[in-house]
């Protein structure tokens, strides 16, 4: 099957021809398969946000192309607009974009812009609210009366209600407490499971991306530095640290164990760590 999203030789230069010229993306190419969960990591200013805003046509590439289902999203105006609905983008701190009188109306903003009929809008609002755990009563209150974590989930529901095939989130868990973080990540997984959606998530938490993603993209100095499975990427720990990035805590522990002479494979999630340790223990018992 054809990949749902193809990024080809993407370049982006800000404020071209002025003293403030700044290259944000340089020759970035990759493909996204339907249903994948991709984690995007990179230090601040590495081009992650610029990259995200190319996926739904908010930014126009200086050169290169973005193909959605094989069609260039800049082919014509209708294609660009269509890409806005098919690729849902959740910005950082999305709760600062809430504006309606009620939670219901705010979630309905996207579907309304899609010119859907009342019944379809209603179905989508309720379904989206369900994915993020917003109750029936909360739909009729003002979004500004909710807690920080709830606001964030309403804002995410506002994008999910458009039922995008690709959902892109920029640090969806930034500034939340551990409980709020777990909830948001579970909400994202629920949406992915129900709609077989493709997810791309930017995160600074290596532990989160290691746990959630099937594939990692590493951005460094406007370029795509690595593209591979979490295991393969985290195996190159030295390079990641050199880029100013981190590795999951458990990976760091295991790399140190190896240095100390223990025979363990590098792991990147706690589950894997438990398995590796119990294997090790069994080995010792049999020996």
């Amino acid at each position: 099957m054809e990949p749902i999203l193809q990024i080809k030789n993407l370049h982006h230069v800000y404020s071209r021809g002025t003293p403030f010229e700044h290259i944000a993306l340089e020759d970035v190419s990759f493909q996204v398969e339907r249903g994948e969960f991709i984690g995007i990591i990179g230090h601040t200013g590495s081009g992650k946000s610029t990259l995200m805003q190319h996926m739904n046509g908010l930014l126009k590439p200086t050169s290169g192309s973005v193909l959605l289902d094989g069609e260039d999203i800049w082919a014509n105006k209708a294609a660009t607009r269509q890409s806005r609905f098919r690729v849902g983008l959740v910005f950082q701190y999305p709760e600062y974009q809430l504006f309606e009188e009620t939670v219901y109306k705010d979630i309905a903003f996207g579907p309304k812009n899609m010119k859907l009929d009342e019944k379809e809008i209603d179905r989508r609002v309720r379904e989206a609210a369900g994915f993020v755990g917003i109750t029936e009563q909360q739909l009729s209150v003002s979004p500004f009366d909710l807690s920080g974590g709830q606001k964030r989930r309403v804002a995410i529901a506002g994008v999910i209600a458009m039922e995008p095939e690709i959902l892109i989130l920029d640090e969806p868990t930034a500034g939340l407490d551990p409980e709020g973080r777990e909830e948001i990540l579970a909400n994202i997984n629920a949406y992915r499971g129900a709609k077989n959606a493709t997810i791309m998530m930017v995160s600074h938490s290596m532990t989160d991306v290691a746990r959630m993603a099937d594939r990692l993209l590493v951005m460094n100095h406007a370029r795509l530095a690595m593209d591979g499975a979490p295991g393969a990427v985290f195996a190159r720990a030295d390079e990641l640290v050199e880029m100013g990035l981190d590795i999951p805590d458990v990976t760091r522990v295991f790399l140190r164990l190896r240095q100390l002479g223990l025979d363990v494979e590098p792991v990147y999630t706690v589950e894997q760590a438990v398995m590796a340790l119990s294997r090790l223990k069994e080995g010792h018992c049999h020996a």
Binding site: R84, L89, F91, F109, G110, N113, M162
Partner: peptide, 13 residues
Amino acid sequence: DKIMNAQKARGAD
């Protein structure tokens, strides 16, 4: 700028 982009992402015109 940020808010405009976010609302555009929700189909605002």
